[in-house]
Amino acid sequence: METDSPSGGRDRSFFYPHQMFFECMTALAVLAVLVALSFVWQAPLEEMADPGDVTYVPRPEWYFLFYFQLLKYFEGPLTVVGTCVLPALVFVLLLLLPFLDKGETVDVRKRPVAAAVCLAVAFSVAGLTAVSILEDERHGYRMVLPPITGEQIAEGQDLFRRFCQSCHGMDGKGGFFAPDLTQIGSRTNRAYIERVILQPQIVSQTTIMSLVPLSDTERHAVSAYLSRKK
C-alpha cells in the first residue's frame, strides 16, 4: 500500500508509544473541556411532559435547528420535499461523492468545485441555524421573561384596558369579538401569551386579532398581568 511506505530515515514515528502519547493527552484535554462545559451548560430538565398542553412549542437541539428552519420554507403540499426528497438527495449525493469527485490532486485550492460545494453546504447550515435562532428569539421561543412584579401587573392591566379590551372580555367587561380572557392564565402559559401578542396568527390563520405594536417592556407587562388571571 502506497501510504504505508516508510518515509525513511531516523525520523519515523510509530503508533506506540509516540502517537499513543498524543492521543492520551488529547483525550485528557477533551475530558477536561467536557467537564468544564457541563458545569457551564447545565443539562436542562423542564416540566414533566403534558400531552394535553398543545400550546407548547418545542425546539430541537441546536444541531437540528438548521433542518427545522429549512422545513419552514416547504409548507403545505411541499412538505414532502423538505422531509423526504431533499434528505434523500443529500444522502445519495454523499454516498456518491467519492465517485463524483475523482482525480489526482487532493489540494483544495485545485478542486474548486468540491471546495465550493463544501463551503456552500457549511454556510447554508450555519446560516439556517443563525436565522432559526434569531427567529426563535423574535417569536419568543427562547424568551427570557423578566420576573413578574406588582408594578408590572398594574401596568399590564392598564395596557390591556387600552389596547385589548375593545375585543376581549375581562371580568365581565369588554368586547365580545374575541375570547374572554378572565381565566387565560389557567389555560395557557406566559410565553404563549407573548407569542400571541407578537404574532396573532398562531391562534388561527384567519384571526381578526390585530397586531398591537407594544414595546418589549409593555408586552412583558401585559403577559405578566394575563398569566396571573387564573
Partner: peptide
Amino acid sequence: SIADHEVPEHADPSK
C-alpha cells in the same frame, strides 16, 4: 500488529 504501524509525518502532531 496493533501498535507498530507507522504514523505518516503529515499526520503526526509533533511535526
